[in-house]
Design a protein around this nucleic acid. Structure first.
Lengths: 112, 112
DNA sequence: AAGACACTTAAGCCACCACTTGACTTTCCA
DNA sequence: TGGAAAGTCAAGTGGTGGCTTAAGTGTCTT
């Protein structure tokens, strides 16, 4: 299950346009820190900080070999966020279904 | 489609625990501003500000009748966020499929 | 060995955000 | 009509976030 803490971190991570850009980039294949920084148009240092947030929330994984760190998507965080959204949407839809049924019953009972 | 701007707003809105609590509450039925404020444990003024953010990003709708404003879920924003997440996840899965196929071909060619 | 390369870490800066208080408007009701 | 209730608006405040520069660490390459 998704604890409140976890949702907090994931959505906070996704709230930044640059971090989402990193995710979009990584869905198309692994990339190094420098490559990501170049694409974002910010410092390597800033990119490292973004990656830290993304990793803390299981949105990105990375491995350092030699002096170069290679990053790739970690689907766990995405799944967590998706699960929360689905829970809300389906809960709302089910409520509407029940509400609809009640209204149908009422109109049947009272006639038009 | 979901523009970058839209994603920015929706995820920012979802990044706050109190705003998510509002959404969770509203999936179980409409509520007034005061009710939401009471549940959150913050001022009515703060709640109004949260509602403003939620409405700007199509996560909540509200209507004022008399002196009381009643709020309910607006599924549009939730769908937007869900769509973005699904796009990333499926893009990543498709890429893995292609990669897997390539690796299979290679192992077939070279034998075990 | 020496310099370039790819990051990493620390410190500081500015903007934004969530929240509060307080004054105000509108609506209800006795 | 007078006052309580429900919400709105504006200003101020403490805290956080994202970015930068600058200095440092480990790793190639020649």
């Amino acid at each position: 299950m998704l604890k409140r803490e976890a949702a907090d971190g994931v959505f906070h991570a996704l709230a930044d346009a640059n971090r989402r850009a990193v995710i979009e980039r990584l869905t198309r294949g692994p990339a190094t820190v420098s490559e990501l920084a170049a694409q974002l148009g910010v410092t390597v240092a800033a990119t490292v900080q973004h990656l830290q947030v993304l990793q803390d929330n299981e949105l990105v994984r990375s491995e350092k070999v030699g002096r170069v760190r290679t990053c790739q998507i970690d689907p766990a965080g995405l799944r967590n966020a998706e699960a929360w959204l689905q829970r809300q949407r389906t809960a709302w839809e089910h409520r509407l279904d029940r509400l609809g049924a009640v209204l149908d019953d009422q109109t049947e009972e009272s006639g038009s």
